[in-house]
């Protein structure tokens, strides 16, 4: 008779229980997004939609939902590009040249502060900055704010990738007669390409997922999907199927990034 490995059995059981805990809300959101709104409130709850319908998705993709998603996309892409572009410049300088005095410590401290201070503590003055300039509720203000908030992350990640690149490669390139800019463009950038891609992915996710900046600096003319979610909950009868549909649509890009970058995520977080 084969002996049952109880330790293994309970180990796997634990993983399964945790898996159910993690996946149930996600499954339930997908389930809800295909329901009619009356079906959402039923007791006992229906574990698959009683009547499968795409109504909620239609509503989201025809109305403000589509606008919110496309605004989010524009802002996230714009801010990511700026943050990573400026981050690449700064991290290359910090990685290759000594900065003394204020430029070094001051710069590092700026970056650190941005990461540790709660965003809401910044938002009061930033809100008034944009309000005074008359730029509140514009793509511009959102893109600039998001790129400033993600710049420290980009610098920090990219500096790590640059540091691991041996200096002799660049020296060889200078010997071959490349100028500083040629070296940067043709030698350094291609070599840290994967690191660059990972940084883009991570910055993009942080901006795409952000809520309070979107809510306070946008919201009327330029509404991002995170700020649109609570707006959907107003009214007598909450259209949970629409909220669920928007949630599902919003998660899809992040899932794609997770699957594509699963190997880098570990490396990034370990640094």
């Amino acid at each position: 008779m084969k002996k049952v490995d109880w330790k293994r059995f309970f180990g796997i059981l634990g993983l399964v229980v945790y898996g159910i805990f993690v996946l149930f809300p996600i499954y339930w959101t997908i389930n809800t997004s295909f329901k009619e709104v009356g079906d959402v409130y039923k007791v006992p709850p229906s574990f698959i939609p009683t009547k499968f319908t795409l109504e909620a998705y239609k509503f989201i993709l025809q109305g403000t939902g589509r606008l919110a998603l496309s605004n989010s996309l524009v802002v996230a892409i714009g801010a990511t590009l700026i943050a990573v572009f400026l981050g690449t410049m700064a991290s290359y300088a910090y990685s290759r040249y000594p900065f003394t005095g204020l430029t070094n410590e001051g710069a590092q401290f700026n970056l650190l502060t941005v990461r540790m201070f709660p965003p809401i503590a910044f938002l009061l003055p930033i809100f008034w900055l944009w309000k005074t300039l008359g730029l509140l509720d514009t793509h511009f203000a959102l893109i600039v704010t998001y790129s400033a908030f993600n710049l420290p992350l980009a610098v920090w990640l990219l500096k790590g990738f640059m540091d691991s690149l041996p200096r002799s490669i660049e020296e060889a390139s200078y010997v071959d007669g490349y100028s500083f800019w040629q070296t940067a463009r043709r030698v350094v950038l291609p070599l840290i390409g994967s690191g660059l891609a990972a940084t883009v992915a991570l910055c993009w996710i942080f901006i795409w997922n952000e809520f309070i900046i979107a809510y306070l600096l946008g919201g009327t003319d330029v509404i991002l999907y995170t700020a649109y979610l609570p707006a959907l909950r107003r009214g007598m009868r909450i259209m949970w199927n629409q909220i669920a549909a928007l949630s599902v649509l919003a998660i899809i890009p992040s899932v794609i990034i997770l699957v594509l970058f699963r190997k880098y995520l570990i490396k990034i977080y370990l640094r």
Binding site: G19, T29, I205, N209, F211, T226, A244, S247, V255, L258
Partner: peptide
């Protein structure tokens, strides 16, 4: 990958769900 899913979504979306 399945266990990492919640981490990838917006806090706001998780809260709504």
């Amino acid at each position: 990958v399945l266990f990492l899913l919640p981490m990838m979504m917006a806090e706001a979306v998780a809260a709504q769900m």
